[in-house]
C-alpha cells in the first residue's frame, strides 16, 4: 500500500501505534477529521512535533491484536488522504455549490435571458 510511504508507523511500548505525518503534504484539519471518523476503532491523540511534522498516537482497546492494529492504522492513513482530497474538492467547488443552492431557492434563472 503506497500511502504509508511518506508517513512512518512505529509501535510504542504500550502497544499503541505512532504515525508520523508530513504537514507539507497533509493538512492538520484532514488528520483531525480522520481521527474523528476512527473514534470507534482507536483513540487518536495528536502531537505537533515541528512545523512540518505531526505525530498521531493511536491507542486501541485491550483485545485488539497486532494485525488488527496495523489494518486500522493503514485505514486511518487512507482516511487522512481521503479527507485531504475532500477538503480540496470542497474548496474548489464551494462557489459553484453556493450558486446552485442560491438558484434552487430563488425564482430567477442562472442563465439570464431577455
Amino acid at each position: 500500500m503506497s500511502q504509508t510511504e511518506d508517513s512512518g508507523v512505529r509501535t510504542s511500548d504500550d502497544g499503541s501505534l505512532l504515525v508520523l505525518f508530513d504537514l507539507r503534504i497533509y493538512k492538520i484539519s484532514a488528520i483531525k477529521k480522520a481521527a474523528y471518523k476512527f473514534a470507534s476503532d482507536c483513540s487518536v491523540l495528536l502531537k505537533q512535533l515541528s512545523v512540518d511534522q505531526l505525530e498521531a498516537h493511536l491507542s486501541f482497546s485491550d483485545n485488539t491484536d497486532a494485525c488488527a492494529k496495523k489494518i486500522i492504522a493503514r485505514a486511518f492513513c487512507n482516511e487522512v488522504i481521503d479527507q485531504d482530497l475532500r477538503e480540496q474538492i470542497a474548496q474548489e467547488t464551494e462557489a459553484t455549490r453556493n450558486l446552485i443552492l442560491a438558484q434552487a431557492f430563488s425564482k430567477t434563472s442562472l442563465l439570464t435571458q431577455e
Partner: peptide, 12 residues
C-alpha cells in the same frame, strides 16, 4: 453551462 441550472432544478 446548463448543468448549473439543471442541478439547481434537481436540488429544488
Amino acid at each position: 453551462s446548463i448543468a448549473l441550472e439543471l442541478l439547481a432544478m434537481k436540488s429544488r
